[in-house]
Every structure is written in C-alpha cells, then in structure tokens.
Design a protein around this nucleic acid. Structure first.
Lengths: 151, 151
DNA sequence: AACCGATAGTTGCATATACAATTAAGTTGA
DNA sequence: TCAACTTAATTGTATATGCAACTATCGGTT
C-alpha cells in the first residue's frame, strides 16, 4: 500500500476521502435548512442552540458543548450573538465562574415559529439523502458520542 | 402531524434533525483530519482544493465549485490564501475574466507529504463511523450531485 | 490566610462559509 | 458600434469554527 504511484494516491483521495464528502454534504444540507429559516433571520446552527436550551432549561456552556461536540469558544461567540438578539439570557448562579443561559420568551417564540420551516427542510433533506443515510447517520453519531467520551 | 404540542415538536427536532447530526459529525471528522495534517500547516479543506487542482490540471473556479458544491466567493478566498502561501498559481488565459489556477511545484510537494497523514486520518474515521456509514455517504453524495444539477 | 491546581468562560487570531453587491470582460443583437 | 445581457471572479459583510492564551473563580492544602 505504501508504494503506489503518487497520481494513484491522489485519485484515491479524490474518490474516497470521507471528509470531502461529509463536508460537501454538510454545506448542501446546512444551506437547505438555512434557506427554509431565512425569513426568520435564523440559521440552523443557532436553532440547534435554541433547541438545546429549550431541552435543558438552564444550560451550562460545557454541557451544551459536550452535547453538540462544539468547542467552547465557538459556543461562547454564538451565545453572544444570540444574547444580543434577545433570544437568550444569562441566569444568575452561585458559582461566579459559570454563565448558564436559558431561552428568553422571544427566543421560545422564535423557536416555535421556526419549527414549521424546519419540518419542511427536514422532509426535503430526508428525501434527497435517503432513509438509509439517515439511519447510518444516527448510528454513526451514537458510536462517535460514546467513543469521544473515551478519548 | 400539525397539532402536536410544542414541547413534543422540540423533542422531535432535538432527536431527529439531520442537520444537527450532520454538522456535529462534520466538526468531529474535520477535526480528526485537521489534527493529522496540523504538522504540515494544512487543513483538510485546503487539501481538498489541492486534490481538485491536481486532478484538473488547470482549474477554473466555477468548475471546482460545482465539483465541491462550494460557493464561488468561498473558493475565491480559499484560493487567495493558498496563492499567498505559494501552493497555487494563476494560469494565463485568453478570457480576461477567468483566473484559472493550478498547483505550483511546492503545492504538489505539500500534497504528496500530506497523503500519509491523510491515510491515517481516513483509516481512523472509517473505523469510527463504520463501513455502512461510508457506503451510505457515497450513495447520498451521488444522489445529491445529480439532484443538484436539476435544481 | 496564601498558594496552587482545576474549572468556566472569554478573547486574540486565523480559516471557512455564504449572500449580496460590485467589477471586469466577453457576447449578442439592433 | 454600442447598448444590453451574461459570465467570471472579487469584495463587503456576517456567521461559524477551533486553537492558544488569558481571566476569573473555586477548592483544597499547608
């Protein structure tokens, strides 16, 4: 395997690289959801955070990051933007280090308005990607979530 | 389906949204490849462009964008960075609008050095995601590439 | 009480991404 | 020929992302 001519290896990368395809699909799918949400001035990345907050009630950064496999600095900036828009608010906490946040009423309202648009995008994406892909995606995420904890 | 209580819908988004999982997996997988390539000061996003250029010889922006499903403005900035690093160069063209580019010798050299690191990351990712996922990913991309042309 | 290590978030910096608007250049039709 | 349209790429603006370094706070030890 190590002695293949270079051009063959380049062809192999082009035709087999998981990252290329996953990143492409991510761009395509993200754009479909973002299109559906555009009239609400909401992006799917932010909707994910709204949903996480809605589920958690009071959300700590680290918990959300573990849940979404996001770097804490990324979440910090995202939450900042969403606080500025009035969708999230900080909840006081005895621990002076932590800045747990929760949905504001306008944030919840927005999430409720977003759900019909989400449903359309979700349906469209499932149709395009196929049921088999969705099943495998869920399984892969389960595996990764377990494996990531171990590393 | 339209009359479900809101909390149930939020739970549904949290548990079923394809975008959430695909974006998570994209972050995780991208980080694995980027880790493997870090010593070369190369990211997998840029490696993808090097590979496309290597395959195409002389690459026009629009062609690369169609191939990778990338917005042209995104590619423009990426190519800009990679030209600045000496990995790509513009090829003169009769059409004054087009700025086709190709690998420079250092760009090719870098790509060759990157391939062993890529192989390790690729192997690791395939093991974590499972063969079933990779098969479905390839199929989904085929479907999307055809469907995208029609839209 | 003072120090030390761990933990929670933020900030500096760089890249990646896309939409909208713009610039530049080619093409076409009156 | 020149105006209108089209095509190729860049630029303005904003969000998303992650690594490294930093700040602030908490807890435990001495």
């Amino acid at each position: 395997m190590g002695a293949e001519p270079m051009q063959a290896m380049i062809d192999k990368v082009a035709s087999e690289c998981v990252a290329v395809r996953l990143r492409m699909l991510n761009r395509i799918v993200t754009n479909i959801y973002d299109d559906a949400l555009r009239s609400l001035d909401l992006k799917v990345s932010q909707m994910n955070i709204l949903v996480a907050a809605a589920k958690m009630g009071t959300a700590r950064h680290v918990e959300v990051c573990e849940h979404l496999h996001l770097d804490v600095s990324t979440l910090s900036r995202n939450v900042e933007r969403m606080k500025a828009r009035g969708w999230l608010e900080v909840v006081p906490d005895e621990d002076g280090r932590s800045q747990p946040f929760r949905l504001t009423p306008p944030g919840r309202k927005l999430l409720e308005k977003a759900i019909p648009a989400w449903s359309e995008a979700q349906q469209q994406v499932k149709k395009v990607l196929g049921e088999g892909f969705v099943v495998q995606l869920n399984q892969a995420m389960k595996r990764v979530s377990q494996g990531a904890a171990a590393s």
